[in-house]
Simulated scan of single mutants.
Amino acid sequence: MRVRWAVVLVASVTAVTAPMTGLPGLPDAAASASSVPTSASASVPTSVLGATVPASGSLAGPVPGNPNGRAVVPLEARAVDTSRPNRVVGNGTPASCTSQAVVNAVAAGGIITFSCGPRPVTITMTATAKVRNARPRIVLDGGGKVTLSGAGKRRILYMNTCDQAQGWTTSHCDDQETPQLTVQNLTFADGNATGQRADGGGGGAIFVRGGRVKVVNTRFVRNRCDPTGPDVGGAAIRVLDQSRDRPVYVVNSTFGGAAGQGGACANGGAVSGIGVSWEILNSVMTYNTATGRGANPARGGTPGGGSGGAIYTDGNRFSVRVAGSVIQNNSAKEGGGAVFFVSNDRTGTLLIEDSALRRNRSAGFETKGYPGIFFLGAGRPKIVRSTLR
């Protein structure tokens, strides 16, 4: 998986501004508490027996994503109708919404909703919820009221079609059509995949290999994975392989949102993929950090990593499209304060449209003329009606 490149392009401070026609981005103060409260400690439960009702200013408050984003969302990327669930976590009270109930529901699959009472709740996961590979579809819908917390101790959600412990369903595990996982109207907080190095590790909130995954109307705050290493990434989401090379959709979602709320990992402070395409639509990525040191592959005497403050992608043929989104105030100790993109065979493409990338610090290197971006792929990044500075 290691990225092999020999040329480092020196950092540039040149601003790139494509023609603008009413940028559908947040204002310069976009990462204010109106997106995600700067202090969410009140939502951390004092008991792990069930869900707790957070005080005012909980994570399950403002609508996630970029409210001014105007990217068209394809039908397959939209939220799933969950009006007729197969399973409901809880019986109407916070105490009934337990970690074990979530684990059981995810293992059983189908459309899953929550009944935890009228107020927002946080469910502290005492174990990682794992998708069984024989399940064709899993939809996890928090109704805008549910936070799943890893308590800074564990990964929250896991799906891996090549993990025989979750059921072996095909000899082509890296390209099977199912399971198809949707998470929507949720908050994932304080997930931590540190030390989880199987299949490259990463994915403090969500790890996926195979099948399909999409994320809609969801918030990710304070998620973590290993702080150093050249082959680990995705503080919030790590994806390896998708069926028929279809993209991962991230729609109307927020990663970080305010100072102190962002994710941190060796690479990819928000999301990371290997040979995986992404469509990030009408979303916000702010205050995320790539914490590694030594880049990929690691320079001698360093532990490696530090690339992709928000987005880290590598592999061969894949694409990344960012549309109607705001990516700002992210940082990388090495390259690509906003986006690190390396297509090893130089066939991959990067498209940024109707978006704003601002104040994303690349401490080591970035591609000249593209502030916050390090790109090795087909041609040059395509920037349409967007601002980079």
Results as ranks from 00 to 15, higher is better:
Met1Thr: 04
Gly305Asp: 08
Tyr158Met: 06
Gly308Trp: 12
Asp241Lys: 09
Thr347Leu: 09
Ile112Arg: 06
Asn288Gly: 12
Glu353Tyr: 03
Thr218Glu: 11
Gly201Asp: 09
Ile383Glu: 02
Thr124Leu: 14
Gly364Thr: 00
Thr124Ser: 06
Gln180Leu: 03
Phe188Leu: 12
Pro371Leu: 07
Ala55His: 13
Asp241Asn: 10
Ala290Gly: 07
Val146Lys: 09
Phe114Cys: 01
Gly324Met: 08
Ser115Cys: 02
Gly256Phe: 03
Glu279His: 14
Gly300Tyr: 01
Phe114Tyr: 09
Gly257Asp: 04
Val213Asn: 11
Thr46Asn: 10
Gly335Cys: 09
Ser83Lys: 12
Pro136Met: 07
Ala356Phe: 14
Gly369His: 05
Asn360Leu: 15
Phe365Lys: 02
Pro303Ile: 11
Ala290Asn: 08
Gly50Met: 10
Gly269Phe: 03
Leu59Arg: 07
Lys145Leu: 15
Val384His: 05
Pro303Gln: 07
Val320Trp: 00
Arg244Pro: 02
Thr169Leu: 09
Ala298Trp: 03
Arg361Asn: 13
Asn68Asp: 07
Asn252Lys: 08
Asp354Ser: 14
Val183Thr: 15
Gly69Val: 04
Ala71Phe: 05
Gly191Trp: 06
Thr387Pro: 04
Pro227Trp: 12
Ser115Pro: 14
Val80Leu: 07
Leu75Val: 15
Thr302Val: 08
Asn344Gln: 15
Ala15Met: 08
Thr187Asp: 08
Leu350Pro: 00
Val73His: 05
Val276Tyr: 04
Ala108Gly: 01
Gly306Trp: 02
Thr286Arg: 05
Gly65Pro: 12
Lys145Asp: 03
Gly305Ala: 05
Trp278Tyr: 14
Phe114Asn: 11
Gly275Asp: 07
Arg361Val: 10
Gln164Cys: 11
Asn344Thr: 14
Arg212Asp: 01
Leu75Ile: 09
Ala295Leu: 01
Gly260Ala: 13
Ile311Glu: 02
Gly61Cys: 10
Thr228Leu: 01
Val44Asp: 14
Asp231Cys: 11
Ala55Cys: 02
Ala356Gln: 11
Thr170Lys: 10
Val53Thr: 15
Lys368His: 12
Glu353Ile: 11
